[in-house]
């Protein structure tokens, strides 16, 4: 092969690399946690559930993973494996920087929880590090979402509310795919970084379709039917409230 041809191939390779990099942009997802529309304030604020029982919230955390974007022609783009733990007590954790190919999108979806593969893959790091208190040691698997607090209606010690929702197997799989359609198209470009604000309403956990009365159920910390019912409820937790270009 002539040196010129080699040079040409080298140049093409460079272009290909450049192109690959150019295509990536950022989509920002900002989660705002609320209870029945009111801003969530840990520990001090009191809320009322659908059954009319008062309660406070001391912890609220959930996993967001396996994000898929939907192009304008409805084709889907599965994004790289990234796991986010949204933790109300850590404000920075509520803003997710999502690497995405440049383009225009009309909708997206994500898992509320951690896919089954990562539940059976041994020691993990980052958001999935068991040090985050979102992994069951005695019955291996991630707690997909967690709410802790108190309620005068709770019969548990210290009037505690403990809702640790998980389970990745079989009929009581608590991992939920959440699909959200954007009110306007999302354009990821060199100079455009859409910021989607998503409201997560904790009220939904205890309302429909499986209403929870704290007087009867104040503690869930195993996978199974009760946890799965909450996951049915929390699959209605998210709404897009605004889209802006940053």
């Amino acid at each position: 092969m002539k040196p010129k041809a080699l040079l040409y191939i080298f140049f093409m390779l460079l272009m290909a690399c450049k192109k690959e990099k150019q295509e990536q942009g950022t989509l920002q997802l900002t989660f705002t946690n609320v209870v029945n529309g009111a801003a969530l304030t840990l520990n001090t604020a009191s809320y009322t559930n659908a059954a009319g029982e008062a309660f406070t919230v001391s912890a609220f955390r959930y996993y967001i993973s396996n994000i898929t974007l939907v192009r304008m022609d409805n084709s889907e783009v599965k994004l790289a494996d990234t796991y986010f733990l949204v933790d109300e007590s850590k404000p920075a954790s509520r803003t997710l920087q999502v690497m995405a190919p440049r383009g225009e999108y009309r909708a997206f979806s994500f898992l509320l929880g951690v896919d089954s593969v990562r539940n059976v893959s041994g020691a993990q790091t980052g958001a999935l590090d068991p040090v985050n208190g979102m992994f069951w040691s005695w019955n291996s698997g991630y707690i997909m979402a967690k709410m802790e607090g108190t309620s005068p209606a709770s019969a548990a010690a210290g009037q505690a509310l403990t809702f640790h929702i998980g389970g990745f197997r079989g009929e009581y799989n608590a991992v939920r795919r959440i699909s959200l359609v954007s009110p306007i198209s999302l354009t990821v470009a060199a100079d455009r970084k859409p910021d989607v604000t998503i409201k997560a309403d904790l009220y939904t956990w205890f309302s429909l379709p499986n209403q929870v009365q704290f007087a009867q159920t104040a503690t869930i910390h195993v996978p199974g039917e009760d946890a799965w019912k909450i996951s049915e409820n929390y699959s209605n937790m998210f709404r897009i409230t605004s889209v802006t270009d940053l």
Partner: peptide, 19 residues
């Protein structure tokens, strides 16, 4: 474990360490 609750050798020590 006697009940098979732990699904991977790497996460096994988590149980005795935190129990």
């Amino acid at each position: 474990m006697w009940d098979g609750g732990v699904n991977h050798l790497e996460v096994q020590p988590l149980t005795p360490i935190t129990d």
